[in-house]
Design a protein around this nucleic acid. Structure first.
Lengths: 223, 223
DNA sequence: GCTTGACAACTTACACTGTAAGGTTCATCT
DNA sequence: AGATGAACCTTACAGTGTAAGTTGTCAAGC
């Protein structure tokens, strides 16, 4: 009430959406492991426990973040040819997962089971089934594709381009002398090469899926 | 000295090797995130800070664990045909990384830079170079292969077979009704199917590498 | 046998984490 | 005006890694 009105309790200030936005900001600034409810609260100008009114736990907040990212995934139109749809589906997953790089490693190891995520997973698995592989093969191909995707996302957001996480490091001179293959290959592993490497592996996988389908079609009776 | 000899200070009791062994044990029991220096100490029958005499920090301990796992990786003999060597190299990485399942997710995101790890990486990259792809392509193929490997290792050690990590879960009835593709595909995603899925993707990748090599050989002048 | 010194283990303390439990404030409705 | 309940805050606790300082023990030198 008095002149020291610093402590204006702006009521109704927080909302789930605002908290989620701020969470992404804090994560990008502090890193995934540097994130905390107290830092998030500081960013929001409130106390840590106020967040718990909107999210019952940190895990619930994280899940909301995953849901939000996954909701942005665009399922490719089924008027397109199958190969293009498969390509777009995988590119889309990579795109949404790397939108907030610091959060990406969390998404990769997150075992999704919320309705928004399941809806997207269901659509993408359906996309693989549309390829005509039969139930088992389409399931396994989806899985193998996921493996590649997860590895790629991890590398781009938390990989070697961020420098070593080892505590005992090796100098560039030693690297060139003792581990020349690592040194040579390393030249292609920077962020500038992410797209090219990803697309190479992606097209390889698409090629091979089509070949696998034809092989399965040629000998459908064989066990 | 007296009868209450409970407090015998067994000197020189600890060693790096013993601590590492115990660390793997505690991790498998408590999970990677449940691991702590205090729990490790309890397992060893000492105080947490005693460990710091042998490892200057938790990060140093973790690095030692990574080094130990990677040191067990067998580089395939170069008398074998190339495709077999590439296959064995990737199978070996999967084998050592999943030897301690709880620790595997750490290895996957660990940016190795210690001599023992670099030696193995150097050998494996060399193996890809032996495939005759030229420097850039062999580097990118190694990278793409790593993506697949990392994703597979993550799935097998921390994936859906461990149940959902989501806080809001969907019942089996809802799953069958609303997300039938997820339901159907899920049948193939248990631990019993890990090997089969992995080998499927692995052979696909090997196939495609050989085709990529021939394509690169057929048009070497083209940009 | 006694002292000395170094090493290995322990004790204490600090800053940080998520969050349970309970207290306070304030907009809205009757 | 009084009640209600949502929204936010305060405090406290058990856990974390680890810096700093202390203690116990054993081997070597005299």
């Amino acid at each position: 009430m008095d002149a020291s009105g610093k402590k204006k309790r702006t009521r109704g200030k927080l909302s789930r959406e605002m908290i989620e936005d701020a969470a992404f900001e804090v994560m990008e600034r502090e890193g995934l492991s540097g994130f905390s409810m107290r830092k998030l609260a500081a960013r929001l100008g409130c106390e840590a426990m106020s967040i718990y009114h909107h999210f019952p736990s940190q895990a619930h907040l994280y899940e909301a973040l995953v849901d939000r990212q996954m909701s942005g995934l665009v399922i490719p139109d089924d008027s397109r040819p199958w190969r293009e749809r498969a390509r777009i589906g995988m590119q889309e997953f990579r795109r949404v997962a790397t939108e907030h790089p610091a959060f990406a490693p969390f998404i990769v190891v997150y075992r999704m089971n919320s309705p928004p995520c399941l809806a997207k997973l269901n659509a993408i698995i359906g996309l693989f089934e549309d390829g005509g592989f039969g139930p088992e093969l389409s399931a396994r191909l989806f899985r193998a594709a996921s493996y590649y995707l997860m590895g790629a996302i991890l590398d781009e957001t938390a990989g070697y381009a961020k420098g070593p996480s080892a505590v005992t490091t090796v100098s560039n001179e030693e690297l060139a002398r003792d581990y020349p293959n690592v040194m040579k290959a390393g030249a292609y592993f920077g962020p500038a090469g992410f797209d090219k490497t990803f697309e190479l592996g992606l097209e390889m996988f698409l090629d091979e899926m089509e070949r696998v389908r034809e092989a399965a079609r040629d000998e459908p009776a064989k066990k």
